[in-house]
Nucleic acid binder design. Sequence first.
DNA 1: ACCGATATTCTCGAACAACGAGATATTAGG
DNA 2: CCTAATATCTCGTTGTTCGAGAATATCGGT
Lengths: 159, 159
Amino acid sequence: MDDQDPALRMVHLLRAVTMELDLFAAEFAGRNGLHSTDVRALIHLLDAGRQGVRATPGWLGAQLGVNSASTTALVDRLERLELVRRERDTEDRRRVLLVVRDEAVRLGWSFFGPLIHEMVDSMGSFDEAELAVVRRFLLAMRDVAAAGRRAQQDGSGRE
Amino acid sequence: MDDQDPALRMVHLLRAVTMELDLFAAEFAGRNGLHSTDVRALIHLLDAGRQGVRATPGWLGAQLGVNSASTTALVDRLERLELVRRERDTEDRRRVLLVVRDEAVRLGWSFFGPLIHEMVDSMGSFDEAELAVVRRFLLAMRDVAAAGRRAQQDGSGRE
DNA sequence: ACCGATATTCTCGAACAACGAGATATTAGG
DNA sequence: CCTAATATCTCGTTGTTCGAGAATATCGGT
């Protein structure tokens, strides 16, 4: 039925990939006493650390879309697991900086490392031109999803 | 640093797409009084309905990786929202069949429809050969993620 | 230097999803 | 018929999430 249209099949396939990655993350979370929110937080914190962005509870909460109470509880959990440290900002002492500890980096790598390695490996069967095509495709899908999300948010005030 | 390697950039990009789609689903969930589990359940139920698979609480719980108690509560929520109906199987009366109601199909389409449409639209700028490449790529990534997930599960008994 | 306005984080109490253990109902085999 | 296996549901507990509001720090105007 739908599956005759190549484009629709592609949409379903993309969703299947997303679902697999989510299940992979969920598997990891359960195995390490984390919750899905904690894993997502860890990803954002590692990204921030890699890019030199200074993470704070407020920033993290905004990334994840959770309110301040939940963010405090989240940071408490991460601190108890020794994945981050709270550190007061000396310039603006209202702020708390979230310092990613080595344990978090190690944990992230022990989890994502093998998967990333396999993925990069699997990309060996694509030449540069093909990867460029895929890259263009993924960028397009990301932008469509982001635009759709914003459209949903904006449309909320009307109904 | 990492971002010099094209393959690693591709991994990050794929993750960004996944993240956008997840946020899109979360946005929808919050707006409709659903939880992320409910949305995932809805997706599975719509897939099952489309493919003629007969859904039961046990099957749904297995798909989502939640236990029987949570599954009962989940089906209760979906039934209260009039998205599914419980119907006893006449052949094996231990079983309960989950019938997807029209409301669920409409809700699913009102949510995913515009996004899917935009995605299909966006694929217009790719010719058949290019889509074939992307398709091969996505299949490879899906399989790598699935294999990695199984490896995680199997390795749990050893440590 | 002070006072109110704003920003950032944290505390408290309630709501609710998820879990483990066990109960209930149905089927299948000896 | 009695037992084992299957499928779903009930009960009580745990822990994340939320809204509302408190506590602390910064900034601008007078």
